[in-house]
Design a binder for these strands. Structure first.
Lengths: 237, 237
DNA sequence: GAAAAACTGTGTCTGGCAGACACGGTTTGT
DNA sequence: ACAAACCGTGTCTGCCAGACACAGTTTTTC
């Protein structure tokens, strides 16, 4: 295993502390991660630099390297720190309700920390809290006739959908935000090229309650899963 | 409209050239974008710098700024250059076949240029080719009783799924690749903490044909859409 | 108790990056 | 012919990640 991955695993999964010789560390991984999250929440992931995070803690940049091997590991810690605990499934609720609640809570995580979208693209080591989210989906689908790989695939499907919705709503942004401009630009472009995109223009002209995207996709996915479950349990009953 | 967004729109949507005074430009937007794509394909999006792209064309970094306002616009051009044309729907095929083909081709685009995942996170201006992909999904769903917003939501749902699968298969990587290490690490971590993630451990232990994730999710989504369409057209017939 | 070992925070340095700006050379319109 | 416009370039600033050496502090070991 490469040293980088090894270090990250130790940071995310390893023991919380280890008493040693030398002077007592003035910082903790938790404080560093929290400072990073603060910067990312305020100015986005791109604004997170060793300089800024250290400055927020009134330390020099290089002191951070005593705690964290590099920036990638810092961001891994930030992700693990910012992601919420997945909701505990309420007693007696079916898989459908559990997955609905799961999706809503995950969407809220992304809404609270939009930079999570940027921080969680690409190959990386996942932390304990993040893995718990996956565990919950798979657990909710236990005992309904799906194979192991199918349960995993279903989890990826759900997570992908929530991610996509989060990306979309971040791109739209609240009214008046800098991101909202892209909506305006999109509108102008569509207006000028409506002939090239007739179906798209028609769909956009059609009114109807917006901001249903999360629920719409979720219902389709759950309907699709329900159909499969029905087929499976029906066939084996 | 901000100047940055305006510039990007002009680059992506504007006229291909405009004869002027001065010396003839030695470069074209196409060549620059192609050089950027070459770098990104070989070393990833993070390795794309003005230096490297210019060097590949045997020019200095600053000369690129005569063609492109900044790096963000360069990447927008790269995306528009790297993304494939969406497949033309074959004659007489239904919406389900069309969307299946669409998803497969989009997944291939991501497989050919994995950095597209990194380049298409966050608010940005989309180009003509990219918008054509969206148009095709919406067009395929025309005339089946879905409202405009619903057709848009369905498109986001599909695109999000393909994206998620592309991200997953990139993270896994081909055997022997540097990314494959993360799979090993994941396996070790799961092995050590199987008690904390019992459902996950069980799902992973269960054998079964892998690499079905794209099709699995796709079938669920399409089943869900089919159920909705059936309800709609049945109710109005 | 004293010396050695190990660790902490820091200052300095390198190499790479995006981008601003000014300049000389080139082409075209008047 | 001349001026305007534009091209490619060299130079400069400021920010970034990270390597490395150093002095001070605390614990272990003799």
């Amino acid at each position: 295993m490469s040293e980088a991955a090894n270090d990250t695993v130790r940071l995310l999964w390893g023991p919380p502390a280890k008493p040693t010789r030398g002077p007592k560390p003035a910082l903790t991984l938790e404080r560093i991660a929290a400072a990073g999250v603060e910067v990312a929440d305020a100015e986005g992931l791109a604004a997170v630099s060793m300089q800024k995070v250290a400055g927020l803690l009134d330390f020099t940049k290089m002191s951070l390297y005593r705690y964290v091997p590099g920036k990638a590991e810092l961001i891994a810690l930030m992700v693990e720190s910012a992601v919420d605990e997945p909701p505990r499934p309420a007693e007696g609720t079916g898989w459908r309700e559990q997955l609905t609640a799961w999706s809503g809570h995950l969407a809220e995580s992304f809404a609270r920390h939009p930079w999570l979208l940027d921080a969680t693209v690409g190959p990386r080591v996942v932390g304990p809290k993040e893995l718990t989210w996956l565990e919950r989906v798979v657990a909710a689908l236990d005992g309904h006739g799906l194979t192991g790989p199918e349960r995993m695939d279903a989890a990826v499907l759900l997570a992908g959908h929530v991610r996509g919705i989060a990306a979309q709503s971040r791109a739209a942004g609240p009214a008046g935000s800098p991101e909202a401009e892209f909506r305006t630009v999109f509108g102008l472009v569509m207006q000028q090229h409506a002939d090239r995109y007739p179906a798209l223009a028609a769909a956009l002209a059609d009114p109807g309650g917006r901001d249903q995207a999360l629920d719409f996709g979720l219902e389709r996915i759950l309907d699709g899963l329900a159909a499969l479950i029905e087929r499976r349990t029906g066939a084996r009953a």
